[in-house]
């Protein structure tokens, strides 16, 4: 198990070091601040954070989820890969949570650059962007497109 995750993580680690993104264009990746003390996240952890079930990162920091609102295709692809749901279902899900006062939906940033800026500026931030836009200001913790 450990050997397997090492094998899986090494190329990602090297690529990040070299400043390359391992993800393909159009495929969403989950990113955090490099100082968040989070190296990687499981799919279930990301589901809990983006679906309003958990409010803190595994390192204990209060999480601030942020999404790339435009183009909608990136968000749609993210939720399709993460929970197998279409955007109308996600919007209806959040209407239920927001208007029953349980939780608030992730912050919407208009562009990939603004997601990167927000994540780079906030230690507790966790964002979703088009994998092709990732740079060394942030750390990739889950690549759903793989």
């Amino acid at each position: 198990m450990r050997a397997l995750s090492l094998v899986r993580c090494t190329p990602l680690f090297l690529a990040t070091l070299l400043g390359f993104s391992p993800a393909r264009a159009g495929e969403p990746v989950v990113i955090v601040h490099p100082d968040s003390k989070v190296q990687s996240l499981t799919r279930d952890e990301v589901i809990n954070l983006f679906m309003g079930r958990q409010k803190r990162l595994p390192s204990g920091l209060v999480a601030s989820p942020v999404e790339q609102a435009e183009p909608p295709a990136t968000r749609a692809r993210f939720y399709h890969l993460l929970v197998g749901k279409d955007l109308p279902d996600i919007h209806a899900y959040w209407a239920r949570l927001l208007y029953s006062g349980q939780a608030q939906p992730p912050r919407q940033a208009p562009s990939a650059e603004e997601v990167l800026e927000f994540v780079a500026a906030n230690k507790g931030a966790i964002g979703v962007v088009d994998g092709a836009r990732v740079d060394r200001r942030v750390r990739v913790v889950l690549d759903l497109g793989k």
Partner: peptide, 19 residues
């Protein structure tokens, strides 16, 4: 003053978009 979900979705009965 808060909603109470006595039944499933009872506290979002008025939010048509959610169902």
């Amino acid at each position: 003053r808060l909603g109470f979900d006595v039944f499933q979705i009872a506290d979002t009965r008025n939010v048509g978009y959610s169902y």
